[in-house]
Design a binder for these strands. Structure first.
Lengths: 194, 194
DNA sequence: CCTACAATCCCTATTAATAGTGAAAATGTT
DNA sequence: AACATTTTCACTATTAATAGGGATTGTAGG
């Protein structure tokens, strides 16, 4: 199967790097480049793309346009390509994220996952958390261990682990710090203010 | 040694609870109550207090007054008593925090720590993180494991563990989620915005 | 020179978390 | 009633993190 891939990355160097990694992983691909959100839109309307890798810089302050693009081109896997501390709010719109400091192995696994999800759709669809999962998440980001969460919700630790597994799968976020940001961004907890 | 303790907690029920826990831990104490920041100020000027337990509600929007109080009465251990998701910015002004959902054991240990620091000062003094510790903290709250941090900083995992121990001791925060909030509040990382 | 501090590395033992599965109740929906 | 989803609990094996020690090197200040 042949894929069209769109890379929207202002830095030529970075764009080059990701292009070369992609061709090493899968030779049956055709890669285009864009350097703005409108260029992305134009290209998506012209050809049939499977995978779009975007520097979120390009969509900042243009969230509405980006969201409608996503809606109009369902089935596309969107991957962000970020340099600095990532914008979790933006990133949540993507199916996955490549960080510039990721190791070659990590990037390879992200791209391979993307390719496999192209053959096996719905795996990247974002799902919302259930009430119970939100309760667990709240206690988690308040610094509780699985055991403490179990005690506070009168559950067995097993159940908490299961909920956490589901949260991880649904949110696509593994780390506690990432989940904390996620919870802040999703208004599950509120940030301190003075 | 006899200690004067001031409890500033609007809820009579909560104030009662903490009072009873205190008397169970240490019988050589004298407890006063206050229900506003000005009442705290008045009482501190009258007597010589060692420990003040405050609901941060009372100092919200009155940070300046609170800070000058802290400066004027050096040596006092300040403990916050919080109900909801804590305000890390406020809490950083305190030497420790009691959360209303903490177990009896946890509260006991916080109070015991406070008593021991009264005899052994400087232990609660807040210290700032070194450059290296901040680097480690950054990578930590970006979701990296100790091993990943070690790789990215070209350190051994041992060193990372040592830095994390120091961060934990200095910040008084054990959980990754708490450290994430800490890092946000201290502008070590920036929060996503759209 | 001596001291304090930062940064580095090492060890053991214990606890916590994760990955990968499985499955039984309870609830909700058509 | 049948089906989907949620919530609950379980097991195994592996990896990660923590607690609590100790130790060396280099550097800046008194």
């Amino acid at each position: 199967m042949k894929y069209n891939i769109l890379i929207a990355e202002p830095s030529a160097l970075v764009a080059n790097g990701i292009t070369s990694m992609l061709t090493r992983i899968n030779e049956h691909i055709f890669i285009s480049h864009a350097d703005s959100l409108s260029a992305i839109s134009t290209l998506l309307n012209k050809g049939s793309y499977s995978l779009v890798i975007v520097n979120p810089m390009l969509i900042q302050n243009k969230l509405d346009i980006f969201k409608s693009l996503k809606k109009n081109f369902e089935g596309i896997v969107w991957i962000s390509l970020v340099y600095s501390w990532y914008d979790a709010n933006l990133l949540s719109l993507f199916d996955n994220a490549i960080h510039i400091n990721d190791s070659g192995e990590q990037i390879k696994s992200i791209l391979e996952k993307a390719f496999s999800s192209l053959n096996n759709p719905h795996s990247t669809a974002q799902q919302s958390l259930t009430e119970r999962e939100i309760e667990v998440l709240k206690l988690l980001v308040e610094g509780n261990s699985n055991k403490e969460i179990a005690e506070k919700l009168s559950l067995s630790a097993h159940t908490v682990i299961t909920h956490r597994k589901n949260i991880t799968v649904k949110s696509g976020i593994k780390s506690v710090s990432g989940l904390t940001i996620y919870a802040v961004v999703k208004n599950i907890i509120s940030l301190p203010q003075d």
